[in-house]
Design a protein around this nucleic acid. Structure first.
Lengths: 241, 241
DNA sequence: GAGTGGTCTAGACCACCCC
DNA sequence: GGGTGGTCTAGACCACTCC
């Protein structure tokens, strides 16, 4: 069950094993897990290693600990929202739809004061401005405009933005995306959005403004999107501190 | 600096100490932290204890690790959004506004099929239905309707809901709130919302549907809210997995 | 009192990075 | 080669819960 000679860390093997038992129904909601000491004995590993595995499961909401009592399988959440930060492309794939893009423009412009302060660069410094219609199964879902520093993201081309920007950033530029802050608000379509998104005048849209950071905290991009309210709902999961 | 005889765990003392140094500017963005071994030597504690402290800081985005190189202070985020799951009351206080409520109704009704499935109770079972106008500094911000199982939340009264529901749940009923999933969408006000929120016909609203769970995964409540788009923006932070 | 999770120790070997 | 974080061990004592 646990291979101590494997290059895969033991805590990770155990974590996946328990997760599997929960998903397969071998461990049901409310069941008490074997104690940490029992796992340690059974697999002849240290209790600290067991704790490392279980801690991750607690963090991900699979199980919860009760001091002096034990560790238990948490109730399954019926709807599983998007976990963590995702791109439009990843988002649509998860929802079982086929993402595509229609490029409106791809150009380099001088940073406005807002963009400059968000990206932590000088005002007027060159930034890529990428505007795209994002479609799912061929239907327009959103109008999205991205701003990225030119100097920090070389080799960005029209071809790249036809597919997935995040894929390029992570796998070609080898940068690690850390987190993002998003501001979400409700609004009514502008004239331009109305045409491009193919909706009626007065239609509601979900405006999402995202700032993405690398794992060292460097700002990566600013994105402003207008999503059709009739086609898109934003789903998130939040933890109590 | 570190008190080993204190009832406060050592890892927590160290975590707070480092966090303080970052916030005070003693450790600046990009600075390398002392190595784990150095912390261990300096405070005469185990390296595993140091790792426990630093792991929390990594999780909270204060620092990041680079394998084989060191641990570094991450760039400060300029805007700090709400961290984690909060109630309207807590939310408004954080934004520096004074929250208040106007109770529309407080009653017990039989669960609809939707409410029943969300709360994991039988259809027709009694649920509290609490509808309130939520105000900030006296201005209507949102119309909110909560549904909670009556049997699982005894002693809930009109008085309680005049202040903070979460405060009551956590401190009087001693239940631990775990997490929530939220669906956010954009819409146009209904007739009823229009009157109660004091906005014009055709105004956009942010619709938030929240399901809250206790830490063992038991559903606690279902909430449907309509926020005035001109007064409220939703801000969140998401991590890349 | 027995069992549980929470914290902590004093080591160890590894892969990785930089010089 | 020397320093770093990543993983792991085999113990220990504590507070807490349940019987």
């Amino acid at each position: 069950m646990i291979n101590k000679d494997s290059p895969i860390p033991i805590y990770y093997q155990l974590e996946e094993k328990i997760k599997g038992q929960i998903e397969q129904g071998e461990l049901k909601t409310g069941d008490m897990l074997p104690s940490e000491r029992e796992y340690a004995d059974r697999f002849e590993i240290s209790r600290m290693t067991v704790r490392q595995a279980i801690s991750k499961l607690v963090n991900d909401g699979y199980v919860y600990r009760k001091k002096g009592t034990g560790t238990f399988v948490a109730e399954k959440k019926i709807e599983q929202p998007l976990q963590g930060l995702t791109s439009f492309t990843e988002d649509m794939k998860t929802r079982g739809m086929k993402p595509s893009n229609r490029l409106i423009h791809f150009r380099v412009v001088p940073a406005t004061s807002y963009t400059a302060s968000a990206l932590n660069i000088d005002e007027g410094a060159p930034v890529y401005e990428i505007q795209r219609i994002r479609l799912a199964d061929g239907v327009p879902m959103a109008l999205e405009t991205n701003y990225l520093s030119e100097s920090l993201n070389p080799r960005l081309t029209e071809e790249v933005v036809q597919s997935s920007l995040y894929d390029f950033i992570e796998n070609k530029l080898n940068k690690k995306i850390g987190e993002a802050t998003q501001i979400i608000e409700s609004s009514i379509v502008t004239e331009k959005e109305m045409e491009l998104l193919e909706v009626k005048k007065g239609s509601p849209v979900l405006i999402i403004e995202r700032k993405t950071y690398l794992d060292d905290g460097t700002p990566l991009e600013v994105v402003k999107s207008a999503y059709r309210a009739d086609r898109y709902r934003f789903m998130i999961n939040m933890k109590r501190n």
